[in-house]
Design a protein around this nucleic acid. Structure first.
Lengths: 142, 142
DNA sequence: ATACTAATTTGTAATCGTTACAAATATAAA
DNA sequence: TTTATATTTGTAACGATTACAAATTAGTAT
């Protein structure tokens, strides 16, 4: 972890109007670094090594704050566990029903706006696709 | 509720390989008739009037069965409550962040398949859009 | 520096949606 | 009718998330 990264994370939070406390810096840095759509449990156990005093309440509060300030996107591809993604650019999420991994794939949002009823205003679009990833597809064919 | 409807519901369940018990018939009929993407609580309280002995476990079991047999789609637009839709045809879901209603809108699935990484196989696609519906948009402009 | 105020973090307890499980009931077969 | 099987039911358990108040930290004025 270089100083430059530290500074970038800090600036990113400040630009979003978030006071950069230690916990928020580390949580956001983790999300920026690990783009594998971690669950809250994964975030908690990994971040607990960096900040031994971190509480789950702070983690939830912080994630909700990030979502509110639009620097993080919640992924509700399945109902029973929340995942988070610091990549707020336009893309879709693919969940493999066999291995459970969540992959990004390119998707340009806004194309569906023309399909919305007139007067409806889109603010956030989530495209979720379930299926089999390349590896699991190969294993099933055998 | 006509006999014809009764028979149609029954056939639809049987075609899906589901034994048409009283509970299943009433639950499926409710979903077919009320296309407003009800939550489990809404389903339970409304169906409880028709079947006073209905238990929540049966409701959950039945909904999971319908999803498994692909005659119902779970809507996970938000993490904290499950909604269900008996319309399994290709369309998107719009949730108004102000009034909370969930609307259907036309969306032809499969168009995003070309965007998936090679080797990935799509089996189910969910498109969720958050924003403001026509009514709430008007009220805000005032 | 010191005292005071506000914001943040923490731990525990509560909440809520969902599932596990075993008993009770209904259905189908022999 | 008996027997086996499937379905339904109620209660208890579970797990993710939030509420809440105390403890800690940071910021500001004196």
């Amino acid at each position: 972890m270089t100083d430059k990264t530290e500074i970038d994370i800090k600036s990113l939070l400040e630009e979003a109007g978030i006071k950069p406390t230690l916990q928020r810096l580390k949580i956001y840095e983790y999300l920026i670094t690990n783009k594998n759509h971690p669950t809250v449990d994964k975030l908690y156990s990994d971040l607990h090594d960096l900040i031994p005093t971190l509480s789950k309440t702070t983690l939830y509060n912080t994630l909700n704050l990030f979502v509110e300030k639009k620097i993080t996107v919640p992924i509700t591809i399945e109902m029973d566990e929340g995942r988070y993604d610091a990549d707020v650019s336009s893309h879709g999420h693919f969940k493999c029903r066999k291995c459970g991994a969540v992959y990004d794939f390119p998707h340009i949002k806004g194309t569906e706006d023309g399909e919305l009823p007139s007067g409806f205003v889109a603010e956030r679009t989530h495209l979720y696709v379930w299926g089999l990833c390349e590896n699991c597809q190969k294993n099933i064919e055998k």
